[in-house]
């Protein structure tokens, strides 16, 4: 055995030199040799690494038999256990790109092996994998191969050796969307003054934080008959049972809690309190219903204005909690509420 690190390569039927569109239906195969771009790729690793083999799969086959293809491909990769997995580049080829994207995502997430691929900015495969793989920015056609491969090889080399991959503009990959915390030479106030001066003089400047973009969800249809509806109560105000049994964080929450409130008329103190670290807790601790109004909902329930208050109430803390965590919580809680047949939800925030 050599002390070189192992690279495993993935290409489609075309780059695998099997054939064109007529061979796009071929099932995945493993070949213990360097084929197509894999050949040139090894030469770019400066003798530090070795491409041990190539997986070839037809683009149509992959897209029509995704699970079967992935099973074979992941199984093969697992057996060979490469240090880095490389796919493509797919340029602007849609089916090839989706295959590279799906495989890259699966390899990175399920096998925890670092992945490098290459795509054109508009390739539909990009969004599938860019958060977990390094996707090198390529031109839209195979003419860009000679430019793309050295960049991919350089990243692969770093990943195999465990060297930190630098920022996207330096390394040539498409930003993964990760906000990486780093040290810089100048303190923030000085950077702010310099940015301001550039702007005042009409010189170019770069913001350190592009504004977030939030997607839109269509409003769900209204409840037809409140008097028959089951209403669930949720809060991001951190109201938890005494002792905070699930240890929900006071800020930057990593989890949510679900508590049985059947037979409870209110979220009274001291049975409940807030663990939220982002606001003055005195008023909520006096009367937790000021944050999560179970008492009022019960009144409406007794009056028959609503059918029923759902037996469980859901809670977490909103302060400093990342949007992606909040999303994850919403998805999990929503699934439960849907399964329980809840008709409508009140979510309170502090």
């Amino acid at each position: 055995m050599s002390d070189k690190y192992k690279v495993l390569y993935y290409v489609n039927q075309f780059f695998g030199q099997v054939g064109g569109e007529d061979k796009a239906g071929m099932a995945p195969e493993y070949r213990g040799e360097k084929i197509g771009p894999a050949l040139g790729f090894e030469g770019l690793l400066n003798k530090n690494g070795e491409v041990v083999g190539t997986i070839i799969c037809g683009d149509n086959y992959f897209n029509e038999n995704k699970e079967k293809a992935l099973d074979f491909i992941l199984g093969t990769i697992k057996d060979i256990a490469p240090d880095v997995f490389v796919a493509g580049p797919a340029f602007n080829a849609g089916r090839y790109g989706v295959a590279c994207g799906e495989i890259s995502k699966a390899v990175a997430e399920k096998l925890n092996i670092p992945v490098v691929t290459g795509m054109y900015m508009e390739n539909p495969g990009l969004d599938i994998c860019k958060e977990v793989a390094y996707v090198v920015r390529t031109s839209d056609s195979a003419g860009g191969m000679r430019k793309a491969l050295p960049i991919m090889a350089q990243i692969a080399d770093k990943l195999a050796k465990g060297i930190e991959v630098g920022p996207p503009e330096e390394e040539g990959y498409i930003p993964r969307g990760m906000r990486k915390t780093i040290f810089v030479e100048k303190r923030g106030s000085q950077r702010a003054v310099e940015m301001l001066l550039a702007r005042l003089k009409g010189q170019p400047f770069t913001t350190e934080m592009p504004m977030p973009v939030f997607d839109i969800v269509e409003p769900a249809p209204a409840i037809k008959d409140l008097s028959k509806a089951t209403i669930a109560l949720c809060t991001s105000g951190g109201i938890v049972p005494e002792g905070n049994p699930d240890h929900i964080q006071s800020a930057s929450a990593q989890k949510w809690g679900k508590y049985d409130i059947a037979g409870r008329d209110a979220l009274n103190a001291p049975d409940f309190y807030t663990t939220h670290g982002g606001y003055d807790p005195v008023y909520a601790n006096e009367i937790p219903d000021r944050v999560a109004p179970l008492d009022i909902l019960r009144e409406f329930e007794k009056e028959g204005y609503i059918g029923k208050v759902y037996d469980f109430f859901y809670t977490t803390t909103g302060t400093g909690t990342s949007v992606s965590k909040a999303k994850e919580f919403g998805t999990q809680i929503g699934a439960e509420l849907k399964a329980a047949g809840v008709d409508g939800v009140i979510l309170t925030s502090t």
């Binding site: 769900a220 919403g330 809680i333 929503g334 925030s349 502090t350």
Partner: peptide, 18 residues
């Protein structure tokens, strides 16, 4: 959170100050 719950087609009302 609000949006993700609404994605299931359950109407949700956000009671919020800001």
């Amino acid at each position: 959170m609000v949006k993700e719950i609404e994605r299931y087609g359950i109407p949700i009302v956000h009671m919020a100050t800001i």
